[in-house]
Simulated assay, not measured.
Amino acid sequence: MSIALEEIVVRHTHRIPVPESPSVRGIAVRTLATVREMAGDHVRHNTCFRDFPRNVPDTFDSGRASCGRRCATRSRRAARSRR
């Protein structure tokens, strides 16, 4: 497992180290990759609320509707299994 010193510093201190060597570009690239990963850029995100904050339902209303759908689905499944 090879972890660059810059990556360890960024992950633990949430600070970007000031390089002292002439190879600043390589360090910057590695540091940027670490920061992007910490921010979740390497993960495919849910695009359910693509136009956030517009068209985002209220938490209570959304939860109530979701719970209602789940209960209705369970009721239908139970009714089918009783047949």
Rank of each mutant, 00 (worst) to 15 (best):
M1R: 09
I3G: 03
A4N: 08
A4S: 12
A4Q: 04
A4C: 08
L5Y: 12
L5I: 13
L5W: 08
E6K: 02
E6L: 08
E6Y: 07
I8H: 02
I8G: 03
I8A: 10
V10Y: 01
V10K: 02
R11M: 05
R11I: 09
R11C: 06
T13Y: 05
T13K: 00
R15S: 12
R15C: 13
R15P: 01
I16S: 05
P17M: 05
P19Q: 06
P19W: 03
E20F: 03
E20K: 08
E20M: 05
S21T: 15
P22A: 08
P22D: 01
V24R: 09
V24C: 14
V24P: 00
V24H: 11
R25Y: 06
R25L: 09
G26Y: 03
G26Q: 07
G26D: 11
I27M: 14
I27T: 11
A28K: 02
V29W: 06
V29F: 09
V29L: 14
R30M: 06
R30F: 00
T31K: 09
L32V: 14
L32W: 04
L32A: 15
A33V: 05
T34G: 03
T34V: 00
V35W: 02
R36E: 09
R36V: 04
R36M: 03
E37I: 05
M38I: 00
A39M: 07
A39D: 00
G40V: 01
D41G: 14
D41C: 10
H42Y: 05
H42E: 06
V43Q: 11
V43M: 14
V43L: 14
H45D: 05
H45N: 10
T47R: 08
T47V: 09
F49P: 00
F49N: 12
F49I: 01
R50G: 03
R50F: 08
D51A: 14
D51F: 15
F52G: 05
F52Y: 13
R54L: 15
R54D: 14
N55M: 07
V56Q: 11
P57H: 15
P57M: 13
P57V: 15
D58R: 02
D58N: 02
T59Y: 09
T59S: 15
T59K: 10
T59Q: 10
T59V: 15
T59I: 15
D61H: 06
D61I: 08
S62V: 06
S62K: 13
A65Q: 12
S66M: 11
S66Q: 07
S66K: 11
S66G: 06
C67Q: 04
C67P: 00
G68W: 02
G68Q: 02
R69G: 10
R69V: 08
R70S: 12
R70V: 10
C71W: 10
A72T: 01
T73P: 00
T73Q: 13
T73D: 13
R74A: 14
R74Y: 14
R74C: 13
R74N: 14
R76G: 03
R76P: 03
R76Y: 04
R77C: 07
R77V: 09
R77T: 04
R77G: 03
R77W: 07
R77D: 13
A78V: 07
A78L: 15
R80Y: 12
R80S: 13
R82T: 13
R82V: 07
R83E: 09
R83S: 06
R83N: 13
